[in-house]
Design a protein around this nucleic acid. Sequence first.
DNA 1: GACTCCAGCACAAACGATTGTGCATTATGT
DNA 2: ACATAATGCACAATCGTTTGTGCTGGAGTC
Lengths: 343, 343
Amino acid sequence: MPSAKLSQVAEAAGVSVSVASRALNGHAEKFRISEETTRRVRRAAESLKYRANHTARALRLSKSGLVGVVVPDLSNPFFASIARSVSLVVESEGYSVVLADSREETDREVEVLKKLSAREVEGYVVCPVGRQSDHLVEIKQSGTPVVLADRTFPDSDLIQVTSKHRLGARWITELLLAQGHRSIGILQGLPGTLPNTQRLLGVQDAVKGDNDAKGDVLWTVAGDNFSQQSGCESTRELLAIQPSITALFAFSTPNAMGAMRAAAESGKSVPNDLSMVTFDDSPYSDLMAVPLTTVDQDVGRIGTTAASLLLDALSGARKKRRHVQEVPVKLLKRHSIAKAKTR
Amino acid sequence: MPSAKLSQVAEAAGVSVSVASRALNGHAEKFRISEETTRRVRRAAESLKYRANHTARALRLSKSGLVGVVVPDLSNPFFASIARSVSLVVESEGYSVVLADSREETDREVEVLKKLSAREVEGYVVCPVGRQSDHLVEIKQSGTPVVLADRTFPDSDLIQVTSKHRLGARWITELLLAQGHRSIGILQGLPGTLPNTQRLLGVQDAVKGDNDAKGDVLWTVAGDNFSQQSGCESTRELLAIQPSITALFAFSTPNAMGAMRAAAESGKSVPNDLSMVTFDDSPYSDLMAVPLTTVDQDVGRIGTTAASLLLDALSGARKKRRHVQEVPVKLLKRHSIAKAKTR
DNA sequence: GACTCCAGCACAAACGATTGTGCATTATGT
DNA sequence: ACATAATGCACAATCGTTTGTGCTGGAGTC
């Protein structure tokens, strides 16, 4: 049942469409519509269950009321949570979220962005695949606000929000150092992305900041992606090349999971033979075979601040805040760190 | 940069808008546009980077090209995966997904559905909160296709897709019975919802089908929701009232997690003192302290079949298939079942 | 009583596409 | 050569809103 049109409301109220429109949109005073007429229109609208046609309005105002959210993988709870908070926030301002999944492929990312732009979304929240930002700044320059979340490009002047990766990595590395670990394996995320480089820096911060830890050796290895699979293989490799490591810092939980499997294969027990920590918490981390000590990102907050930054941009508010926002992280100490054995 | 309008393309090609429109939409032959003209229009469109304005087209054709997806909680990987597959599938037909999260509240569900209808979405995939379906059949009757996923209402004639809950529950219960368990606790999901009742039936099927298992006792208890919290509390309660149970069947993984905690508190070890199985797999189930034996739903397939059923309905295809589709489940045998101790 | 003035509303033009119909011009048939 | 048909395109209405402007009638002023 195509709901009532404005013209029907107008007719029912005995006025013209223009009056009906203004009455319903609160422009009554500005256009000198009498209170009584306004009431009549309101009543007519209600009794006809009038709901303004978004499409028509969108066409007239060139405001679609849509914001695009694009994530690399919606089945990843991290991104799903971001999408969720964004949706919840922008919705309160009358916007709806149209969703796109880039499948971790940059090509698809630019493709879905094109599709979204054809839909005339008014703004984007995107968790970029990671290394390229040209297409994103292009969009921004074309006038549509873009806010980045998680993977960011500080060199661009895009609005962006991310966790305090560096600080978190530093903290958790300090934990490792404090337990005497001097040979630490690092399971990287996607090299070249901001979270990854920041975390690497954080690790170095910790090492440099610790006088005792001079000459510490970090062995880093990179997987192709965030899967358990890749985590397992990389760890196998690492353990083969450098069996002396006493601790492993995985940059993602699935990677850590894979690492645990690899450790088990090679007869090392966690945490006794190999301490293990990770970035990114999973909902079940504390129920794992060995509860993982992790640095936990505040996903919800990433999403909500991204959303409100976008809303600011949409309402044309000057950005009072810096163009890159960092949200705090938390250290979750559980039981995957043991004292380093003397070698 | 508001991309080129059709009128500009037309002008550039030296034709009228109507010709331009038809040329670009493949109606050239039908309306006797010469090939040469068609080519000119095409070239003009390309060089101007013309992209049809979705909004205008939507208004004219009353086809928004949008489908609404509403889920109770996007941060739950189960629903996120459904949303993802739906998005991926409908996108290939030119639709986009607009997302809504009902926060497990029926009120919000009807509210977001209203919003979506104001946006003139052409169809819905909804994972209902669970017990009420009136508003959904109402939408369907108003002419917009609705496909239900997961929680379904077989009595309505809505199109719906769900897992073989009954069969899965039967299988896994049989596993328990085969190990001699005769007193089994059941941690229900949302009572009154189809998955829940079906699973309950499946459990009974297993018991009735086993001649040895006459007089078996099932102790069921229901939590308020699918949280660990609720699983933990319910289990505490259950163990207090009925300490003799030797196995526990949780209808969701978070519930099972909570149950494990409760078991630990009361000094019972899993699976030695208490076997535990669950419905719904979590991505990390096999890395848990004790890898859980579960019946695994094929989430991706739920999503994709829901999506294609919706596409069928949108294209006006007669529904050749039954209006409720059941997708297969898989038994994942891991290590959370032990032989029942003789009492 | 003729003047202005203002309240209160209606008209009509957009927004950018699709589509039924009309009008030339050329081609065909006899 | 004349009627007819086919070809190739342009006109204009339409989808449902919003909004700049114009119109009307009654009150107020002198």
